[in-house]
Design a binder for these strands. Sequence first.
DNA 1: CATGTCTGCCCC
DNA 2: ATTCTGC
DNA 3: GCAGAATGGGCAGACATG
Length: 452
Amino acid sequence: DQKIGLFASMLGAATPSERRYLVRLATGQMRLGAGDMTLLDALAEAFLGSKTRRPPLEHAYNISSDIGLVARTLLEEGVAGVLAIPVTLHRPIRPMLTQRVSRISEIPERIGSSIIAVEEKYDGERIQAHKDGDDVTLFSRRLTDVTHQYPDIVEHVRQRVMADTAILDGEAVAFDRDTETYHPFQTLMRRRRKHRIKEVADEIPATYRVFDLLYVDGEPYLRRSYPDRRARLEAALSVDERISSADRILTGDLDGIQDFYITCVERGLEGIVCKSCAEDSFYRAGAREWQWIKWKSDYGTELADTLDLVIVGANAGRGKRAGTYGSVLCAAYNHDEDIFQTVCGMGSGFSDADLADLPRRLVGAKADRQPARVMVTPQAAPDFWFAPAQVVEVLGLEITESPVHTCNWDPERRRGLALRFPRFVRWRDEKNPEAATTTAEITAIFRRRREG
DNA sequence: CATGTCTGCCCC
DNA sequence: ATTCTGC
DNA sequence: GCAGAATGGGCAGACATG
């Protein structure tokens, strides 16, 4: 009510045009895209005459993650001052990101190194740890301070990193000692909370799998080769069950990559990350380049589980999708009960032409209310309903348990199954809705992966 | 007070 | 996260 | 190829409802 009152008085005092922006601000509909890189361009343009002079600013930003610092330093000390901005403890470095390929055989072609390191890829949370004596700070992938979230990792870094100062890059995962398997990502996310952090940390201990070293004993390591950084990392880590370097192999060819990938998948991991071992395999803060290439099972469509799902609803598009649908609600066929149960929404993978065509394609199936044979939880209820008619091929990474989607719904646990990272592949116009993937098939896929 | 639903976002 | 598009 | 903007699942916690 306080919010409402305040907002009402603001709206009352505003001009019509201001009102529009106030509403957009409040509802998160602001569509002015100015990312960090655009701001750096603007800084270069304003103070150095041209945006071609962005690189030194960008470098300082990549190692400081503080665009305000870069701007202030540029104003007060010029480019020389910006160039002198050092890697600093408790100031996060923008994480190096991975490239992707659509065929695994592209990896050796693109990586530019005869020796390739292949690391396990974990389905957890990216964590950058800064150790400054006993003072440890943890940063998430988007560089927010998550130190309080992982008291266990803080303790491990404090005790088992054998260097006075260090910056580590790695992944927090939930590893189950008893079953020797990793918990799903969802389990780790239960630790993303405000209350009862300690209790849940005991219940779901985090393991820190470290794969890089960016700074040690007062020295930045960004411009050392990956093999050197890795060797120094291993020397600095006093490994135990809750902190260790990422498992990996070194190989020279595609077969080696494929073999290791298969063993990773068999062990329930998400995939692999291949890393160049070349002389110039530096840590490229903030960059997504070909020194690091990831491979997951859904990248090559042949290996992936593709589902044929029925469209039962759609949501209104926003922003550049205003005027068409932004996503569609997809369901599987429950043969036993002769109903359709939802598995995912889907708004990715459509070209602009596909999107523009969506209303025409769906108009014939439009329904006033939720069709009788469609089962949806309130949280998944769409803006528009459709009678089951259109069948679409959907690609996703994996099946997860879901409180939102009704596929194979368990009324006791109030949970169904959902598809993670769904995207549009193509229409299956030749299929009837009853020929869609069944909820039983999806359940079988889920069990096969969960139980090995 | 218990339960249902919605929102924000340290995540992927 | 994935994907598409304008530059 | 980059940068931006669409979109997904899902969690805890806030808020609404009865």
